[in-house]
């Protein structure tokens, strides 16, 4: 494996669902790559297509009304159109996924340990006791107290934080190269959130895994990620290194998202700024820039879809930098990143 070849390379991924006889595009021309031991965050509001992107990479979209085009290469292997049988070898073994709600993501009628054993034994020829030993060790590594006993408990007997740790332990049980975490902290309270993020951040050192972190929370991104991809309404709004994006967002949407993080220093704002309006539904996307109706900088040239242009270290789908009216850099939030 060459270090310079990206682990996951997604190019021009388009996903559309057929509904009432017409194709509704959910994700349009999304391209990004995840390098070895890198954490990439996909950020966006609900409905921006970030979860669908991840599910498509995992081959978990199972309706026949979906059309996926483009390319997603994992270690050079094309994932789009890969038969389910071949996908099964990858899923859980090389690419693993952690889901949003740990309350419902475990089968309620089996113990946590049984479910982790099941994943290990699905991919490796090991005995039950060997699998259990690994399970207990993984749970311990994830900071689960008394892992031997916890393994024998049912999902409903554990707290949300423990369950998410168990979920991550399960995802990592076969030492995957890529971990896709779909809003892993959304359902948890803030202190547990920080612990889980710590855990994810340390994965690359401890397990050498790359992480694709999907979130709507810029605060989470600031704490964990190397690369950031901001999605809006199924398209890439901005993509680049986290530091650069936090220091100088080039897309007004990114800037607005950053504004909505409460500052850690300085005077406490009475009200955090919010973005007026809501994202358009996939079937009613405007012809031009999808963010234009909610954008303070919207003007005539926003009526056509802006191409991704390179601006500094990032690429951005906005006309402002091209027109020489780039957004100001942000000094205040920099210490957050």
């Amino acid at each position: 494996m060459h270090a310079d070849v990206p682990l996951l390379e997604v190019q021009n991924l388009c996903i559309s669902f057929r509904s009432h006889g017409r194709n509704v595009p959910i994700v349009e021309n999304v391209s990004f790559s995840v390098n070895m031991q890198e954490i990439l965050a996909i950020v966006g509001e609900s409905g921006s297509g970030k979860s669908v992107t991840a599910t498509a990479i995992m081959g978990l979209i199972d309706t026949r009304d979906v059309k996926i085009t483009g390319s997603a290469k994992f270690r050079g292997q094309e994932l789009i159109g890969l038969p389910q049988k071949a996908f099964r070898q990858l899923r859980g073994r090389h690419i693993a996924m952690v889901f949003q709600d740990p309350m419902t993501a475990f089968t309620p009628v089996y113990t946590i340990g049984w479910q982790i054993d099941e994943q290990i034994r699905a991919h490796e020829r090991v005995s039950k006791s060997e699998a259990r030993a690994r399970t207990v060790q993984m749970l311990g590594n994830m900071g689960v107290p008394d892992p031997e006993r916890t393994a024998n408990r049912y999902p409903h007997q554990l707290s949300g934080g423990l369950r998410q740790r168990a979920m991550i332990a399960m995802a990592l049980s076969c030492n995957p190269a890529l971990l896709i975490a779909d809003e892993p902290t959304t359902a948890l309270d803030v202190t547990v959130q920080a612990q889980i993020l710590d855990l994810i951040r340390n994965l690359r050192h401890d397990y050498g895994s790359s992480v694709l972190l999907i979130t709507h929370d810029m605060g989470v991104v600031a704490e964990t990620c190397d690369q950031v991809m901001v999605m809006y309404s199924g398209r890439v709004a901005e993509f680049g290194p986290g530091d650069a994006i936090f220091a100088q967002p080039a897309h007004p949407y990114t800037a607005a998202l950053l504004d909505s993080i409460p500052p850690l220093t300085g005077p406490r704002p009475t009200r955090l700024p919010s973005i007026a309006g809501s994202p358009p539904s996939p079937s009613e996307r405007p012809a031009g820039c999808a963010f234009a109706p909610r954008c303070n900088y919207s003007h005539k040239s926003c009526e056509t879809v802006p191409p991704l242009v390179t601006y500094g270290q990032q690429s951005v789908a906005c006309v402002l930098p091209v027109e020489g009216r780039a957004l100001p850099s942000r000094a205040v939030t920099k210490d957050l990143a």
Partner: peptide, 17 residues
Amino acid sequence: GEDFMRTARAKGLSPTR
């Protein structure tokens, strides 16, 4: 349609299982 079924598929189990 439950989350745990998606988890089970994401684990790489066979559809029958």
